[in-house]
Design a protein around this nucleic acid. Structure first.
Lengths: 343, 343
DNA sequence: GTGAAAGCGCTAACAA
DNA sequence: TTGTTAGCGCTTTCAC
């Protein structure tokens, strides 16, 4: 039933030329190999006619290249990552590359397994938001001359390309904004994590408070625990710290957990407490009240990431230089962080 | 630099056996081919030692199988699709399959191109939320005996597997709920689309109104237009139909557009109008007011889809039967659809 | 200018 | 019980 696709040999046979000739023409080497224009055209025309498409698998096996880039993000269902994924895919697609996405779920094991799988597949390049603990695997990729671009986070000790936002200063500014609005008991809800981006956010928060001689108040959650549990954690944190008057959430999903927690606490209302989320979300403007956020420049991040990747892919020379891109994030002030009437 | 990975031949040479033997052992055919346990074990041990991994590309070239399933959704950055994607990926992963996701953006051309690409890659199976207009391409896949599972929508004229929710009745119930809350001028905001799921939702809406002798009021948007434009469309629709007292949005992102539109209209507030969204969203509970929604059973959908796919993949007999799964959706009533104080 | 042929790493029919 | 070998479809060197 499945009528086999024509192979390069079929083409060659029909045209009474050798596969070599066909291959050269197909790969645009007709000129270089001084194949007669006439023949070249004839081949092209015939190929078009029968709708011949080279077998990518065979091509990969032969060349060791796949024109596939893997994109491993923390969680594809997170708005930030899925947006970046979309944008990167689009750009890659235009340049003739395919993107394979997948989610690491911040698990070292899963990430390792995925990297191994992609190596098996002779994937051309790796775009990764690595969980803490996979330095060695990344180093392994680099050692074996695979193009790697990290984003959202990086490993300070690793010589790699990366694209991140200025987490420290963005958080610093966000906290300062809250202070300027009259808040003084500002909490920070984040993840137990050694990832630099989370650390930088935490440090930006601490520094801002320190500069104003205010005390820090930090709650750390565990990424691996189910959302429900983390919500409960936040709830009890809030209940036990009724004096706080503002909160900075370190990611958009923590913000969502936090807001749900606040909603469920009877003596507390989101209107009573200043809120800023690190990482924006399409729907934050629709919340009650609309949530202020540190917006990461999704388009620029994607553009930088894919550009660095393609440059490496297309020019092996580039493999020797590491690009470090640090982009500014933008504080978007909505109602949630403004001075409250009560305060 | 890149020290080549060992090939099956290297293994064979080191062990002084033939590649066949190694291949058989590796593929679990040792028993079947009556290779001595001793030898088999020795091979396995050595393979383990040198960390040999078969070259997937070569394997695919040879077997015509890739153990990859493609998952083409409308838009990976949409909460519904990205959630399904995550769940399907997880299940597939456990069964030794990889998932390649990508977004069709509801474009016939892009979808076609993607299908073509996946065929080149000898992808084993296709999970698709097809845009209207790709019947033939899907039919082509089926003709060539590729396992296909559609979800979220399907083509009535096509003999395929599909998993959908009961769009008609779910919408019917949602509209009825609004009516029971005292609303009578209920609008429906949807997409210009020939996709069955959108049609069913529309028809469910119409039927519910008809049964109560209420007049329908439908606004159709264009998926391909930028979000901003669609928001404006909704705004002018609302402005021109001030008499309406409730709205059903046909997808979660249309709901978001609609709510943004409402927010920006001075004489209108989301508190004044009954709202139900088809398709739930994690953050709807946090909106002002919390948005009622028809929640699709994401877990079940994913489970059904991947089960059908794996069954087909593992048992070619299954290719001859088409599974049609229609799942019930659940109306989640939040504040937005309750009787208003003003009304 | 063009073609023959080796070989990428693997599987499996066939031989021994 | 194990080995030999012919490809899968393609690229590319070398020979003509």
């Amino acid at each position: 039933m499945k009528n086999k696709r024509p192979s390069i040999r079929d083409i060659a046979k029909q045209l009474n030329v050798s596969t070599t000739t066909v291959s050269f023409v197909l790969n645009g080497k007709a000129k270089e190999k001084r194949i007669s224009e006439q023949l070249a055209e004839q081949v092209l025309k015939f190929v078009e006619e029968v709708g011949y498409k080279p077998n990518q698998i065979a091509q990969s096996l032969r060349t060791g290249k796949s024109r596939i880039i893997s994109l491993m993000v923390e969680d594809i269902s997170n708005a930030f990552f899925s947006k970046v994924a979309r944008l990167i895919e689009e750009a890659a697609h235009q340049r003739g590359y395919k993107i394979i996405y997948c989610s690491t779920e911040n698990s070292v094991d899963k990430t390792r397994e995925l990297i191994r799988m992609f190596r098996d597949w002779q994937i051309d390049g790796y775009i990764i938001t690595p969980p803490a603990g996979v330095e060695e695997d990344i180093q392994g990729l680099i050692n074996d001359k695979h193009p790697v671009v990290l984003f959202d986070r990086f490993f300070p000790r690793l010589k790699t390309n990366y694209v991140i936002v200025d987490n420290f200063n963005s958080t610093y500014k966000a906290v300062n904004h809250l202070i300027s609005q009259g808040y003084s008991r500002i909490a920070f809800v984040t993840l137990e994590s050694e990832q630099v981006q989370m650390n930088d956010r935490l440090n930006g928060y601490k520094k801002a408070l320190e500069d104003c001689l205010l005390p820090p108040l930090v709650k750390s959650l565990n990424f691996d625990k189910p959302a429900e549990e983390n919500k409960k954690e936040i709830t009890s944190f809030l209940v036990n710290n009724r004096q706080l008057d503002a909160i900075v959430f370190a990611t958009n999903y923590i913000s969502v957990w936090g807001l749900e927690a606040i909603r469920d606490i009877t003596f507390m209302s989101p209107a009573d407490v200043g809120i800023v989320s690190f990482d924006d979300h399409d729907v934050f403007p629709l919340f009650a009240p609309p949530v202020s956020a540190v917006a990461q420049p999704v388009e620029e991040i994607s553009k930088e990431v894919i550009n660095i990747m393609l440059k490496q892919l297309e020019d092996p020379e580039q493999m020797n230089t590491n690009k470090h891109v640090v982009l500014p994030a933008k504080l978007i002030i909505r109602e949630s962080s403004l001075k409250k009437k009560l305060a």
